[in-house]
Design a protein around this nucleic acid. Sequence first.
DNA 1: GATGTAGTTGTCCCT
DNA 2: AAGGGACAACTACAT
Length: 643
Amino acid sequence: MPKPRVIYWFRTDLRLHDSPALNVALNLHPDCLYPVWTWDPHYVYRARVGSNRWQYLLECQADLSKSITELNPQSKLLLIREAPQTVFPKLFKAWKITHLVFEKDTDAYARERDGEVVKLAEEAGVKVLIKCGRTLYDPDLLVQANNGKPTMSISQVQAAAKKLGPVPRPIPAPTSLPSPGDTSLPFSQSKPAPSPDLNSNHRSTTDESYANLAGPNNDFAIPTLHELGINEATTPHHGGETLALQQLDKILTNKTYTATFEKPKTAPTDFEPQATTLLSPHLHFGSLSVRQFYWGVQDTIAVYHGTPSTPPTSLIGQLLFRDMYFGAQASLGHAFSHTHNNPQCRFIPWHLPSTISPATNRPTDTYTIDSPQAEEWFSRWRDGRTGFPFVDALMRQLRTEGWIHHLGRHLLACFLTRGGCYISWERGAAVFEEFLLDHEVACNAGNWQWLSCTAFYSQYYRCYSPVAFGRKWDREGRFVKRYVPELEAYGEKFIYEPWKAPRADQRKWKCLVGGDGMSIEENGVKVYPKPMFDFGERRDVCLKGMKKAYEVGLYGDDERVLDGRWRELFGEDDVGDTGGESGQVGNDDVEADEDGQGHEPSARKGKKDPASGKGKGKGKDGHKREASQSTLDGMFTRNKKKK
DNA sequence: GATGTAGTTGTCCCT
DNA sequence: AAGGGACAACTACAT
């Protein structure tokens, strides 16, 4: 029996510590070990990746390669610029490989790709060893323990996890690594088709990713952003196992923080330092092992003198949610990433729905503009110029830094979907995919479904207010001012609703409120956009739409959703009325509205039918509210245009 | 099967 | 000024 010659294929596991798959490879006691990364065109062109995440990936790779070389000066990460499906058969032959080892990836695309690679390996007589290491539990086993069904609630995850037994303890990093053998590449490179390139908006120079199989110097080096044609990154957050372990250590050192963490009590407005761990990008790239984190927290809790927090809001709870989304995706596959054909996802007639390809019966990269108004709202949301300072601040933080607090993501998602624009969650998910450093297919799709109340969560009447939510955490608006600096001089009273500030004050504070955010300065004075709609009105429209859609009760796999007959079940008014012209307050010119008082959003207008609720006790409190409500209505409907 | 209860992460008004 | 209660009113799960 010849000694094993192993390719270790790095993908979702850019680390040496606690890598079950790497451990399996080393336990083969191989004659040689090739640490390989293949530059998969799917992620280069077909997934949405902005410059910040590109940089983060390269940093993870560089740190890993350095650590490999520290263990063995003959070794490093061998970065090969070709699709795995075409390059592996050639490598197997050239390097006389006996084993291919990698960490299991249950993302829908990855499963298809890995299936092909496994088949090619078998054809080449190469043994394949796959080990789960990306989540607390193997998502497929989690699904199995959940009676074969997708994990759709945290209690299901906890029950299934109980059957699977305790999370394995982390494995220490290896202290030595075998050298690779001969690394010559006696074959030609198959270049991928570079189009369509979903990341062209992040490139400003020529893309040379695939110029040479082993890079410009033929040394398997990690590319630079420049070689990829990608613009310079702007994020302060950096990747790599070394940083990840330092960051984890820092968190665990603060025992009270670790043991009593409660997500809902962390402030989305905190910056420097942020209120949460910022470990999610490290978990995404595998530069931090999730089990290392898990046991670090559990061991801290075990000796903590005090009452520790518990799932679902604790740090452990956060990791369980992550496993829940992985379990849902593992079970549902591609369908989990969209509504179409997804049996767990409610059908809501959102604006800007994904276009379905008849050939693949899956959504394409494009969507239908069913409403020019919705398209305008979408682009203003995406650019951070909605006119709601907290929304825009979060969006700008996301775009420049690649990370925002979880609750900030909630607000953005609620605002775009059921609590404002009534636009498909799939549009928002695509934007988060582009900009988030920690973008994880399963978690992103899952969280967007959660917040849009299409799956996992259903309390659509709980609607985030773009004004009150930020103010609750940060009265003075320090966070807003950091990311929307044109509002620097605005005080507590108007920082979350600058359109209410009197014109004279707007001038004094050197920032006028008006327009749609396309101009940021006029005659030397800064300009911040007017809110793009009256939030109170939009909330009412959305709530009504959601109520109707819940009554209709269609899911993504319903025949009537697939063939368009769903329209028969909704009235004209139920399809997310964008309010035509009456709902819009964004296009007035800067000098309009001199007193600054005209666009007070209407308070929620009187409940349609306060008496008919199945409610117990709508008692005196209700009456009081009615009374004060009508007063407010009298005040605020004054300037409203008629429908 | 009916009924009751709890659900990671709201808002508003009141004290 | 933090904190409690009413309110919105659906779904999953337990009994």
